[in-house]
């Protein structure tokens, strides 16, 4: 597995660029990854989605279903895609430091 360094922080990532350890997440990670996810600047809206994903993951041990993400944050799926062009899984979960989505994706 590869190690990345950004602003003095070290991140261990897999080949798809997902963090291998949720605990290694830090705000620098979001800064680092946003470019490859096609996001010029992190807005409050982005932060709200990231914060919710992290809270939900800490509480439940899983990423929320898309409908739960929409309902709680108030962003429709279309708006989530506007915020995170790669979508809630590849985009938002990756930025939030959650594990890579699995199953037949």
């Amino acid at each position: 597995m590869a190690f990345l360094e950004y602003k003095g922080k070290k991140f261990e990532v897999d080949e798809d660029g997902f963090l291998l350890k949720f605990e290694e997440w830090s705000p620098e990670w979001v800064e680092y990854i946003k470019e490859s996810e096609g996001i010029p600047t992190i807005t409050e809206n982005h932060q709200k989605v990231i914060d919710f994903l992290q809270d939900y993951y800490k509480k439940n041990g899983i990423a929320p279903m898309v409908r739960i993400l929409s309902k709680i944050t108030g962003y429709k799926l279309k708006e989530i895609y506007e915020l995170f062009p790669s979508g809630p899984g590849k985009g938002a979960c990756k930025m939030a430091g959650l594990p890579k989505p699995t199953g037949c994706v």
């Binding site: 291998l20 949720f22 993951y57 899983i62 594990p99 699995t102």
Partner: peptide
């Protein structure tokens, strides 16, 4: 060693 890092255990 890695399970909790790469998996969502409830799934």
């Amino acid at each position: 060693e890695n399970l909790d890092n790469v998996c969502e255990v409830p799934l």
